[in-house]
Nucleic acid binder design. Structure first.
Lengths: 124, 124
DNA sequence: AATATAATGCAACTAAGATGCAATAACAAA
DNA sequence: TTTGTTATTGCATCTTAGTTGCATTATATT
């Protein structure tokens, strides 16, 4: 169903994403809220926020689940890639558009595009 | 490091990839070899074959690890995408090239590109 | 204030993947 | 072909991400 009630925990999570200009992994969030919010609650809030269209998710290079805010309704179905830094581990949405190739006999519905490298803070 | 000894198990794994024109998930392989090869062994053989350049790996849409044979030495560092079918779960390397956008201040070293949809067998 | 039910906490579970160590099997050299 | 070295395997155990069921609590509505 999605979010029906704006609980304290829900507000906290929304607030965290408002103030973070980057994607956050579930693992990271569970740690962040340790003591104030149950692990299961974090998972469920993220799930609902995604259904609501407030957040979107992707699978990181190491198989972990990440979430980031859904900036704009118009961008919802667009296939923007996510960048993940090998040095510091941070991840963020890239606003560039990646051309999804069309492949004969295949219908492509969505994409999980992870670009891996070094972010601006971690250049050597 | 890499492979030093061609054991029966190693030969089996190589043979499986030779005869499979698709990517195989570790989970799938562990199941396939149940009874004849230990789970840990499967993980370690795949790891070594990847180091050797015989296989390459990627992270699937659900966070699982997949392997596929490294067709050609020249393609090693190329960024080909992987297709994953939502219906049957099968995955394979696509030979098309995806244009990796360059992002100012970011150095992109590699990519994990997963295209999700319906394969030729699963069109509705 | 009373009520219906969405949301949370808790405990327990599942599944992927990793690790340490003793036993075994490749393979090079004798 | 036997022997010795050591890479590889099996086994048990562990770690961690993510899920589930259920009783309790909190939110929003009347």
């Amino acid at each position: 169903m999605g979010i029906v009630r704006k609980t304290k925990s829900v507000k906290k999570v929304i607030d965290t994403f408002e103030n973070a200009n980057q994607a956050l992994s579930v693992v990271e969030l569970v740690k962040k809220y340790d003591g104030e919010m149950n692990k299961t609650t974090v998972y469920r809030i993220l799930e609902r926020l995604e259904e609501e269209g407030v957040l979107h998710s992707f699978t990181g290079k190491d198989g972990l689940k990440w979430f980031a805010k859904q900036e704009d309704a118009s961008k919802v179905q667009s296939t923007h890639p996510h960048f993940q830094c090998q040095e510091c581990g941070k991840s963020e949405c890239l606003s560039v558009d990646v051309e999804i190739p069309s492949v004969p006999n295949y219908s492509i519905q969505k994409a999980n595009l992870i670009l891996v490298g070094a972010c601006s803070d971690c250049q050597s």
